[in-house]
Design a protein around this nucleic acid. Structure first.
Length: 690
RNA sequence: GGCGCGAUAGCUCAGCCGGUUAGAGCGCAGCACUCAUAAUGCUGAGGUCGAGGGUUCGAGUCCCUCUUGCGCUACCA
């Protein structure tokens, strides 16, 4: 076996220990990495596959607060669940670590120290909300208020979950501390910023040309378009300073003086988790972790989904380069997103196929899901998982092509030769053609895997099974046996060898199946070099009575899954709707001057997608209102429309237009906006609503 | 609006640095076969390669404009 002598370090994005894994995670960052690593190892390469739970960050502390528990309890729960699910599913990490561990804290702090001593950071003061009652600064997530965009009263400081806008805490109307329920005050706090703008030049060369420190670092042609495009878009748009510390009591404490109550920004601490996980792995096996992180012989590859590109291709590389001891990734094969049944996967809306539930509902069918997710892997664009497609791929491909071929070969061998691999006789041209074709196809999957083209690689594997089926159909051993049983020995020996090849070729993609198949064939030892050696199984060797490798997925199973999916989504929707809003007193309500108005003029606001500039008749006067309804109504169609209007809202300038008051719209479940207008024509502009 | 990535058979997708009649899998139709989980094999129908310009002897393949999907970003009182 010849190897490159390289040391491969492969990482998959650290899953956030705040919820279970779903198929989008798997398709995005774990399954391709697992296939890649399994392949490397089969070829004798020195490869380490590292991952772990990302357990810090404000989202987890928030959740703990809400559920009346501690962050540690939450991450313990999900860390256990996630690592168990990975194991059951067959994502074969060499080490699955966690960032709440002491060793990780230590590694992350040392990393920070090195950068701090190199003056990588700029200390800066900024104003931030402070909860006086609890004597602490509030992370963005710890501030709630009314969303300035959609009016939702429960928006967080960083994001409104109703309309999805990302926010700054200072934008919120009536900000309130989640801790005390009181209005927080703005106070000054110091943070360590990473001045990313200083790194634009070398980053551009690194991403675009693949050069680092004037030397070739990687071949940019091997990087995916969307990765390079996304990075250059960020770099060319100008990078800015980014705070690497947070005021929070959950995370890795900032290891310098005057930093009490501060922790490392979760996005700085998490990728360092790759390093601490490698360390932990190396210690447990007597290896030196730096062999995999430094030197020209070591190759780092990050598997992620596209939402992580900026962190893995810009921020973390800056940190690594500044530190000086570590390699930068040679590739970051980021996947696009996997959609589900026509809609985006969403944890909060419960629109997901959860991996642990799949394993429960489809026991022993890990490879079926691995097959489907690899077949539709979102390598170059978003792709879509549907249960109907899952069923079709399992039934028409795994069952009918692969499973069926193996079954045919084994059943025939048992039927004619008492389950012993028959001795081949003279190989006819059709036999030699088969052997040549198999060896030729066998060369492809490995090359494609190295190019991170898993979908195509898997197709090549299926071609082997197709060739096997064709061989049987062309040579018809069941017919020939009546006249020439000697010839059938050769035919079935070849068929069994093809099944043997399949057990090797399928190993990276379908490890559970490969193992079963090898057990049928009594084949031990797996080694990719053997894929160029057609005759794997010696004649005379007994083979087992075959069980079916795959079963058909029934219509009922599929319908149940779709039903489950919809039921959960609806339940979640109801929950959110029913979530009681805090009581308000009548006085609060009467502060709002609600009126009927009639729209008398409307025009689109130039350069804005969602805005219309409306002139409304309030009965007493004409007022200008800017309203975000352009996606739902054309300007000319709203003239003459009566609507509900909040008259005494503070005016604000939007796109240079002074907007007075606000139109109130009904929002349907699909986000469609609708006017609410009086049902009796006698109600006129200016009439009060109470 | 700015930026990025897409738009190729009914569906899911390949098509590298431009070069003869545009490919695969599934689905569909017909035929063959019966060892096999009514599975398999063969044959076939089906595409003005999102639209329009341009460069070129020659363009899904390069350039421009437009339409459209997705993502990031700004605005959304």
């Amino acid at each position: 076996m010849s190897t490159t002598g390289k040391k491969h370090l492969i990482t998959s994005a650290l899953p956030y220990a705040n919820g279970p894994l779903h198929i989008g995670h798997i398709a995005g960052a774990y399954l391709p990495a697992d296939i890649y690593v399994r392949y490397l190892k089969l070829t004798g390469e020195d490869a380490v596959f590292i991952c772990g739970s990302d357990e810090h960050g404000a989202a987890i502390t928030m959740r703990a607060l809400k559920e009346g528990t501690t962050p540690q309890e939450i991450v313990d729960k999900y860390h256990a669940q996630i690592s168990k699910t990975f194991e059951e599913f067959g994502i074969d990490f060499d080490f699955y670590h966690r960032t709440s561990g002491e060793d990780h804290h230590k590694t992350a702090q040392e990393f920070f120290q090195v950068l701090n001593e190199k003056n990588t950071f700029e200390k800066r003061e900024k104003e931030q909300f402070f909860d006086v009652a609890h004597q602490q600064f509030l992370a963005d997530r710890y501030i709630k208020g009314t969303c300035p965009k959609c009016g939702h009263s429960e928006a967080y400081g960083d994001q409104c979950e109703k309309c999805g806008s990302s926010l700054n805490p200072s934008e919120l109307i009536d900000p309130v501390s989640v801790l005390s329920g009181k209005t927080p005050e703005l106070r000054k706090t110091t943070h360590w910023f990473l001045p990313m703008q200083k790194h634009e030049k070398w980053l551009r060369d690194w991403v675009k040309e693949g050069t680092l420190n004037g030397k070739t670092h990687h071949n940019p042609a091997t990087w995916r378009n969307q990765v390079i495009g996304q990075c250059l878009s960020w770099i060319d748009g100008g990078l800015g300073p980014r705070a690497m510390t947070r005021d929070l009591n959950w995370g890795v404490p900032v290891p310098v003086k005057d930093a009490e109550g501060k922790v490392l920004y979760v996005w700085m601490d998490a990728p360092i988790g790759y390093i601490s996980a490698t360390k932990a792995w190396a210690q447990s096996g007597g290896k030196n972790y730096m062999d995999y992180w430094s030197g020209e012989n070591a190759e780092l590859t990050h598997f992620i989904a596209k939402d992580n590109i900026v962190f893995h291709c810009i921020i973390f590389p800056i940190l690594l380069k500044e530190h000086g001891s570590f390699n930068l990734p040679v590739n970051v094969p980021a996947n696009e997103f996997l959609n589900l049944e026509g809609d985006k996967i969403s944890t909060s809306r419960e629109w997901a196929v959860w991996l642990h539930e799949y394993l429960k509902d489809f026991p022993g069918k890990q490879d079926e899901l691995r097959y489907v997710l690899t077949s539709i892997s979102p390598e170059s664009r978003d792709s879509e998982f549907t249960w109907k497609d899952y069923q079709a791929r399992v039934n028409n491909e795994l069952v009918a092509i692969l499973g069926n071929f193996v079954n045919r070969a084994l059943v025939l061998t048992h039927k004619y030769f008492e389950g012993k691999v028959p001795e081949p006789g003279k190989q006819e041209p059709i036999d030699l053609e088969l052997q040549e074709e198999i060896l030729r196809i066998n060369q492809k999957p490995g090359k494609l895997i190295l190019q991170h083209r898993y979908r195509e690689a898997l197709k090549e594997v299926m071609k082997i099974a197709r060739a096997g089926n064709k061989y049987l159909a062309d040579t018809e051993p069941w017919k020939v046996f009546k006249t020439n049983p000697e010839r059938v020995k050769t035919l079935l020996n070849n068929a069994i060898q093809v099944a043997g090849q399949l057990s090797l070729l399928s190993e990276p993609f379908l490890p559970h199946t490969a193992k079963k198949l090898r057990a049928f064939l009594n084949l031990t030892g797996v080694n990719w070099d053997l894929t160029q050696n057609f005759e794997l199984i010696v004649s005379g060797q007994p083979i087992e009575k075959p069980a079916l490798l795959f079963e058909k997925i029934t219509d009922e199973q599929v319908e149940n899954q779709v039903k489950q999916l919809n039921a959960k989504k609806q339940q979640k929707q109801k929950e959110q709707e029913m979530k009681a809003m805090p009581d308000v007193n009548f006085e609060d309500f009467t502060k709002m001057d609600l009126r009927v108005v009639e729209i008398i003029d409307a025009e689109a606001v130039p350069k804005a997608k969602k805005l219309l500039k409306l002139t409304v008749d309030t009965g007493a006067e004409k007022r200008t209102v800017v309203s975000g309804i352009a996606k739902h109504y054309k300007p000319e169609s709203v003239i003459g429309q009566k609507a509900v209007y909040l008259a005494n809202l503070k005016p604000k300038s939007i796109f240079g237009i002074e907007s007075h008051g606000m139109l109130l719209m009904a929002e349907g479940s699909e986000g469609e906006l609708s006017f609410m207008s009086p049902e009796k024509p006698s109600v006129a502009a200016g009439d009060k609503i109470a």
